[in-house]
């Protein structure tokens, strides 16, 4: 299997070692197009490392993987044209305004000026940016920064959207707004790969994987996972799976 067009993401035995430490240990999974795939795990379980390999930010030590039909070992620059990435740490320019940041990334993804303008207007109204659009980003509260990160990640309408803890430190109302945005992105045809620590959010995903110490210990729909472990909430599922974890921050 060199290319797989049906699957958004396909990973086999993906491993990352930093010296003697194995951050990600032979993980294997597939994500279908149009799916919301939840990537759960305690702090230090290896979620961000795995995601960085899928996005072409980090070379895998071992294993195979395809993202948007491209090989993660050899075609990472091709992958980058088809994905959007929102990192856990805010990584947009603090000294530019909201609109300047959006214009910059629209330009980097090669959007035409007229298309970019329409898209930026659309995103700004979708995210309820009013006067904030001309504010310097550094002065905005965290929730607004996160919304801006999300809109920059989706500005070029990527096939696959990678969200690394998009709602970390965000108030409940904004969190809800975020999930509405995620759903509307999926309705537009995007595939979403999301990590989170909120178990109520995990329930919104089509399928979930739970990582413990660099390995995937469970992978199923939220409903099946609850049945499998004989409990009522995802919170309980997570606790049962993560109980054996030996590493955490």
């Amino acid at each position: 299997m060199d290319r797989n067009d049906r699957l958004a993401i396909s990973v086999k035995g993906l491993t990352k070692r930093f010296g003697a430490f194995t951050a990600v240990d032979h993980i294997t999974f597939d994500v279908a197009g149009g799916e919301i795939f939840g990537f759960l795990g305690a702090n230090g379980a290896g979620k961000t490392t795995a995601m960085r390999m899928l996005c072409g930010l980090s070379f895998p030590t071992e294993g195979k993987g395809w993202v948007a039909g491209f090989d993660i070992m050899k075609q990472s620059e091709q992958i980058k044209k088809h994905i959007g990435y929102m990192s856990q740490r805010f990584s947009l320019y603090d000294d530019l305004t909201v609109v300047e940041n959006m214009r910059l990334f629209a330009g980097i993804y090669g959007m035409k000026t007229s298309d970019a303008k329409l898209r930026i207007d659309e995103l700004l109204s979708q995210l309820h940016f009013g006067q904030e659009r001309h504010a310097i980003v550094g002065s905005l509260p965290l929730g607004w920064k996160q919304k801006l990160s999300f809109s920059v990640a989706t500005i070029h309408r990527p096939e696959i959207l990678f969200l690394d803890e998009p709602t970390g430190g965000v108030d409940p109302i904004t969190r809800r707004q975020f999930w509405e945005l995620i759903y509307s992105s999926v309705n537009e045809g995007m595939t979403v790969f999301v990590t989170t620590h909120y178990m109520d959010e995990a329930e919104y995903c089509n399928r979930l994987s739970v990582m413990v110490d660099g390995q995937i210990k469970a992978l199923n729909t939220p409903k099946e996972l609850k049945l499998q472990y004989g409990v009522d909430t995802m919170d309980e599922v997570f606790r049962r799976i993560a109980r054996g974890a030996t590493r955490s921050e």
Binding site: L57, K80, K81, Y85, S87, S91, Y109, G110
Partner: peptide, 14 residues
Amino acid sequence: ESGTIEQINVSPVS
């Protein structure tokens, strides 16, 4: 240091 290069690295810019 500010992490902004990450958003550039994940884009297709050469």
